[in-house]
Amino acid sequence: MSAKPKLSVGPILYYWDRDKIFDFYREIAQSAADIVYLGETVCAKRTLIRLEEWFEIADTLAAAGKEVVLSSMALLEADSELKRLKRICENDRYWVEANDMGAVNLMQGRPFVSGHSVNVYNERTLKLLAQKGMRRWVLPVELSHETLAAMQAQRPEGVETEVFAYGRLPLAYSARCFTARAHNLPKDDCQYRCLDYPDGLTLSAQDDTRFLALNGIQTQSAQTFNLLPELDRLVELKVDVLRISPQSNRTLQIIDIFNRAINGELDAAEGAAQLSRWMPVGPCDGYWFGDAGMIEHARNRIAG
């Protein structure tokens, strides 16, 4: 039998209030997750948790037996953001998830994870980053299982593969804040409106089809990407880590469902049916099958 994939909890992509974040990680410490990615990756203005406090949360989780990775910002603009990045990269306790080539540059020669916003689209890129110290890479979310299979076949030794397996998909980053824009506010006076949308702000087409989710400067899918029905294939492809991207409610139960399915205690399809009830809008998985990302393949296949 193939090795069971580990479970990771991705960085919180939204802006939650302090108490909610501390409560969340107290629960995560008790969960079945093996790896926890920590830190603000979307907007430099989200500073309710200071960097020192992120380190404290990291220490608590590490003491509870979790592998902790510090995630960097995906879009670096101001010099203050680079300075903060340097502090993260200089830490000597935890690996860093580089979400930008600037972070990759700072981590050269030391172990790091390349996040899904670093464009690793082919084996030559994978090999190059492995030479620079990359120990794990996260498959960019628009790539299919076929591309993953080809990459896995030529994966350099000592490199783990992680797949974004559950959550609203990060699709784009901008200088502009779309949440502030939705409130007719300039970015410099955003009034921290993201705090009101712990799962992002859903955007619909004019015919009411729910399509995207606005999360500050990040745009996400309205639909929640879910690969639980593909668990057998993920195992077959020797994926080492499955990432669950936190949502405002029931992340613990979601981890539990993935964990039970991995341990053969729960049928993946049954688990997926349960998960779909907790999604803000509904599921999608098109990218995994090489289709438009918003398509839901799992259900179509069953229905078809």
Binding site: A74, L75, S117, E142, A172, L212, G293, M294
Partner: peptide, 12 residues
């Protein structure tokens, strides 16, 4: 959007 990191088009 930041070029090279926008996949809105492939989402649709």
């Amino acid at each position: 959007m930041v070029e090279g990191r926008c996949i809105l088009s492939s989402y649709a």
